[in-house]
Write a protein that binds this DNA or RNA. Structure first.
Lengths: 355, 355
DNA sequence: TTGTATGCGTTATCAG
DNA sequence: CTGATAACGCATACAA
């Protein structure tokens, strides 16, 4: 593989000149530049990234560590990160960190010298101190952390506000007895959504009854299973809020099999707004989480940090608003919403705050 | 940030010794190693990746360039790549290449010196020569390319075989007039699936009628729209094979709205086996493409290449078999298939060949 | 078992 | 405008 030296020799100039050409330095005559470029193309030369970053102390890449690369949510986050990073001429060094809490740390370790900073999603509070350590060396932005970390930028999801808005909506629709199919216990998102559920019921006239809170696990299966308990409740609820869309899907399958009409006999709501949600039968009313936007914001925060001298850096905590998507699974409020088209999502009301 | 020199000085040894410790060299006494490690931990030292790869000419990372990071298919590919790469102690430098054909080349260019090779999905034949150029420098594996490229490993999808198997199945179920909702014209996968469709009809007793081939675009919307044409056909087909699951979803929505029972009046089949497919109403009969496995195989092929001296390298072309997933949307063959559980998929017959 | 010295491919500083 | 040359942080051949 041709190096800068080869090009210099072949073009009859010094390596410094070649370097200048490839860095668009104005300190080189157009004629020389052309000649160098010609030789470079002929020799199929391109600067070696490792050498370059060793010399400049910049790598032009952001490390991204996510707990797991499974599902639409994560793929959307990555897409958002990639899009925004590319727009800023940065690349992405990706790693999933497995569930183990030490994995995140190890992944980040092994990226040293190869990244200018980190965007990470850390499910375990145990990673906290290690992350703080990294943050002393370079900018770190955390995605929806369940614990406070110093010296890191943070983007979280308005789970609480989204859930509260959804339950408020159900109350507005006249429901009083609203069940909740919870997410896995210990999960930050699940916990916040439950808080929002309770808060809305407390504010409104809803039944705040512990027996209405059915266990769930964020998956289709647990949603399916929850229908059984749901239908046994006395008096039977008229609406269910599932902690995420997968749960809602399972729930709707089970209700359909049980001959319970949705939304007629039971309104169903979800959380996430997966791409399939508008196309279910009936289309699912849910809370939209714009995962790609989550990724984009993380990158923007990260860029802000990079462009700021370390001593005057601030560490903003941003909260990604969620949006209520009213579809048919909860009955129509103002007539039946128009049919949504693929790729085009209807508008809605934003829930959440910014800081 | 502490360097190897800092550690050496602090520990009272040479940099060579520190280096040996971090490379698990047996040529260092246990005592010294411990001391070095102690100091390293205290100084929060970790080898600089750029410097290391400059010296060793190995980076420990694979460049991954995909045309677009959207949707479950791509996220699964990435997951497969990541899983397998991590198992082999490799990291992933990710980049989406936009649709532009030069983008792939640029992305790969800018990765030079930072990767040991490339796994790419190149939708445009124009990238062909550039890829061949890369392949002369380091191992390249292509994902499902629509054109022949020299010196590259290749993993493609058994689109033809999968489609043929599906249509054969429909024929077996007694259907004779089977429509096809095509994918976008020019798309490799779409083209191969159509070939499989025609082949099966030719072999069997099906109607090989051009008017049965309805235009589509791989999305929900075009599937929805296709129902109109489908229902107008004279005589009306008893089954439709949609070129992918999204198309099938749209089709099923439209049929449901039109009051056409599935599978009673119209059998519907898809292609891809998206995660939601088993949970539709009725569950969708489709052809499973294991995208994660596609990614894994690409990495394995890549590993094979890396571990082989360049002169004796061969460039295998592997074809990922697809699997027929029989569910209820085409009617049951041997009674109703058992209900599938999330995360557990039923077995099926493999279609495709290996080389 | 340990240390010394050289090279990896660039950038950047300093002279010309 | 151009050219030497010293870093950058590490691995390794060679010496000890």
């Amino acid at each position: 593989m041709a190096t800068i030296k080869d090009v210099a020799r072949e073009a009859g100039v010094s390596v410094a000149t070649v370097s200048r050409v490839f860095n668009n330095s104005p300190l080189v005559s157009e004629m020389t530049a052309e000649a160098v470029l010609e030789v470079a193309t002929r020799l199929d030369y391109w600067p070696n990234g490792a050498a370059r970053s060793l010399s400049t102390r910049r790598t032009g890449t952001i490390g991204v560590v996510l707990p797991d690369l499974y599902g639409e949510f994560f793929s959307e986050i990555i897409r958002g990160i990639d899009t925004e990073a590319r727009a800023g001429k940065y690349q992405i060094l990706l790693s999933s960190s497995h569930a183990a809490e030490s994995a995140l740390v190890k992944a980040a370790q092994s990226m040293r010298g190869r990244i200018d900073g980190l965007i990470a999603m850390a499910p375990h509070a145990g990673s906290s101190n290690a992350l703080g350590e990294f943050a002393r060396h370079f900018p770190v932005v955390l995605l929806n952390p369940g614990f406070p970390v110093e010296n890191c930028g943070v983007v979280s999801i308005a789970n609480f506000e989204g859930a509260r808005a959804m339950v408020r909506h159900l109350l507005e629709m006249g429901h009083r007895r609203i069940a909740l199919v919870k997410g896995p216990s210990g999960n930050v998102d699940a916990e916040e959504r439950r808080r929002g559920y309770r808060e809305a019921l407390k504010e409104g006239e809803g039944d705040l009854d512990p027996s209405l809170e059915i266990p769930g696990d964020f998956d289709q299966e647990s949603g399916y299973a929850s229908a059984d308990l749901l239908l046994r409740l006395q008096p039977r609820p008229t609406a269910v809020f599932a902690a995420n869309d997968w749960t809602a899907f399972g729930l709707m399958s089970a209700l359909s099999e049980a001959g319970v009409r949705v939304p007629g006999e039971m309104a169903v709501a979800g959380f996430d707004d997966m791409s399939i949600a508008p196309f279910l039968n009936p289309p699912l009313t849910t809370v939209r989480v714009d995962a790609a936007e989550l990724g984009k914001r993380a990158v923007r925060l990260w860029f802000d940090a990079v462009r700021t001298p370390p001593e005057s850096r601030i560490f903003p905590r941003e909260i990604l608003p969620t949006t209520l998507k009213v579809r048919r699974s909860c009955g129509a409020r103002n007539g039946t919403p128009e049919r949504e088209r693929a790729g085009r999502r209807g508008t809605g009301t934003e829930n959440g705050r910014r800081e």
